[in-house]
């Protein structure tokens, strides 16, 4: 059954991708991209990658789409007719594709447990991590402990993206002026949004602290929390949102998150372990692991929340500006 669902979803993805190639309405392109993301996240669920699906849904389908829409609001929604010939790109793509197909011919069969990928390193994560790290969610164990350095880098990437967007678009000034913006005329929206935003926030925090037991963790939590504020900004307008969460605060939070993560690693050094070694954080290695993971997940959550939100602020302030003029 799983294979069948996989096939159907992949087919839908293929059709969507094909359609995107030929669409000239960029709004439609972006919306279809949202669908693409959603569907691929479904595939992730189907292929047992629940954490990935969680992230893809929140980050890929959610944030990326919102940012793309924000860009479109400023750049216009029609793609101009393409003047240059599509022959060369087509050729490049065909050659690349042919190379990939050639590469698949020696690949291990899909789904076979005997595949080398599932044999060498992975078994230890599956069999030992619940004892070594003490968490039922192996993805979190690998993410936050075995490969914590990757994750530190990932946090830094998010931080870097925030720096990039800040330098390009700047942050909105926190203003008392009640510019008529947001979906003011949508009474229903305002009321519903006000009702669900607190729930979303609590949900985000729940995801933050339950990444050990189920899908979730700092990244997803940060994104969801940011999404809640984004919803607020969409409905009530950016000026109000910046009064609730100040841009300056976001800058500090984004930095603090990375620092919290890195400081946990450095703490390992001072307790006599290697960088990011949590075993030494407490007398019992497993307890140490637990402490370390909670703290770094918190750092991730803070950075991701602040970074995503400040990125959104950057885009929204531009849109707001364009709207006023």
């Amino acid at each position: 059954m799983a294979e069948l669902i996989d096939l159907v979803l992949l087919g839908m993805l293929a059709i969507t991708a094909l359609r995107i190639i030929f669409l000239k309405d960029l709004f439609a392109v972006v919306m279809l991209f949202g669908i693409y993301s959603f569907l691929s996240a479904l595939i992730f669920v189907n292929l047992d990658a629940v954490d990935v699906a969680f992230t893809e849904a929140a980050v890929g389908a959610g944030i990326a789409t919102v940012l793309m829409l924000g860009t479109l609001a400023l750049t216009g929604r029609k793609e101009k007719a393409n003047s240059h010939t599509a022959l060369l790109p087509l050729l490049v793509v065909i050659v690349t594709g042919a190379a990939l197909i050639y590469g698949t011919l020696d690949m291990p069969p899909f789904g076979d447990p005997e595949n080398p990928a599932n044999q060498h390193v992975a078994p230890r994560y599956i069999e030992e991590s619940p004892q070594e790290v003490g968490l039922p969610n192996m993805v979190t164990s690998v993410l936050a402990s075995y490969r914590a350095f990757d994750t530190l880098g990932e946090t830094a990437v998010v931080f870097a993206a925030a720096i990039g967007v800040l330098s390009l678009l700047g942050l909105p000034k926190q203003s008392q002026a009640t510019i008529e913006s947001g979906l003011k005329s949508h009474l229903v929206l305002r009321v519903v949004a006000k009702l669900i935003i607190p729930l979303i926030l609590v949900f985000a925090l729940y995801v933050q602290f339950h990444g050990d037991y189920g899908p979730g963790g700092g990244f997803q939590a940060g994104v969801i929390a940011a999404a809640a504020i984004i919803l607020y900004a969409l409905v009530f307008g950016l000026p109000l949102a910046t009064q609730v969460i100040q841009p300056k605060l976001l800058k500090i939070l984004a930095s603090m998150g990375v620092l919290i993560y890195a400081a946990t690693g450095v703490a390992g050094l001072f307790f006599g372990g290697n960088f990011l070694d949590y075993n030494v954080l407490a007398s019992d290695p497993v307890a140490g692991q637990h402490i370390g993971i909670i703290v770094i997940e918190f750092g991730i959550g803070v950075t991701v929340f602040a970074a995503i939100l400040s990125i959104f602020y950057g885009f929204a302030s531009q849109a707001e500006r364009a709207n006023i003029q």
């Binding site: 305002r190 607190p198 607020y232 109000l240 009064q243 609730v244």
Partner: peptide, 20 residues
């Protein structure tokens, strides 16, 4: 978490004056 969110709710209400 709950305390944090309630604080945020309060902040939002103070800005938009539309407590729900």
């Amino acid at each position: 978490s709950v305390v944090l969110v309630v604080v945020l709710v309060r902040r939002m209400d103070n800005t938009d004056n539309q407590p729900q």
